[in-house]
Design a protein around this nucleic acid. Structure first.
Lengths: 156, 156
DNA sequence: TCAGAACAGTTACAAACGCAACCATCGCAG
DNA sequence: CTGCGATGGTTGCGTTTGTAACTGTTCTGA
């Protein structure tokens, strides 16, 4: 058993930076790895891009929702959302309905077809999460979540 | 004091997915927040893009390095590296030198000017890390690093 | 009542990205 | 040798992205 190594961005020399130990870099890289892995799954299976998957996931979560709300809930720029919505609409996975009172607003819902894909996507997500637990161990997951939670807590 | 809430992607209903509890999403979002915060610093201060910052950081870390090695060390696509190198070269922050023996290889080094910026960048990075520790708490940082380490361990 | 601020959503445009094709060079097997 | 696969690095091209500007609509306050 090795003694646990404390990884930091320092190399002993304070005038250098070890990129591989620098937290923002490590975090970005880790997120990229996980995102890509999961993206491969839904891309191969449903032909979705990342913004489209997030959009679909958000609509499915709330049944009926507006574009602005989707952006707020999924941390996406409104142009990304707009384009994702159009793409999903062209596949007939969602429908839009202009609000009766405020005609700027469009309510978005899943079609039957969209719901089918959403259900499958949820299964996929859960099973990927399970794989993550298996790969990283429950303690790894717990620590990661705790760390993320700390960031979330500080961020507005 | 509230009891700690266990956050999961489930909403009780297994046929739904709570995006805000889904680990890949949370991780991507957290990384994005941190990356953006730090990027604002070096962009405002040195006018660097993200690939340029990573490239510069890697060159500074190793003094003399090739483009391929930069890509491997900083997890960037070779075209990204190529373009970042060109941009840094145009600012006269780095120099290239074709290898005497293998003329495909270019050795890259910092110029005096580049070194000045690199030093400042290192200071910036360290002080940002310190701010992170302050904001998230040492335990938050430790947990985050442990979680990331678990991912790194599994990834090739 | 009505002018202008605010807001939902789209679009035009430029920058950034990755893939694939490419050039130049090297290494190696026959 | 020499021909051909592998390697380092660049570039062309289609796609994706964010910014800003725009359309259409509602809200607000004088």
């Amino acid at each position: 058993m090795n003694p646990p190594e404390r990884q930091t961005a320092q190399t002993g020399d304070a005038n250098r930076l070890a990129l591989e130990g620098f937290l923002p870099y490590r975090l970005a890289r880790a997120a990229e790895i996980i995102s890509r892995q999961f993206a491969t799954l839904y891309r191969e299976r449903h032909g979705l891009t990342r913004p489209e998957w997030r959009t679909l996931a958000t609509i499915g979560q709330f049944d009926r929702i507006t574009a602005t709300e989707i952006g707020a809930h999924s941390s996406m720029h409104k142009t990304k959302v707009s384009r994702a919505i159009r793409a999903l609409e062209e596949r007939n996975w969602i429908t839009r309905q202009v609000d009766d009172i405020d005609r700027r607003i469009e309510h978005i819902e899943l079609t039957r077809e969209g719901r089918t894909h959403y259900r499958d996507l949820v299964t996929l997500a859960h099973s990927y999460e399970a794989k993550l637990v298996e790969a990283l161990g429950q303690s790894g997951i717990d620590q990661l979540e705790a760390g993320i939670a700390a960031i979330e807590r500080k961020h507005t």
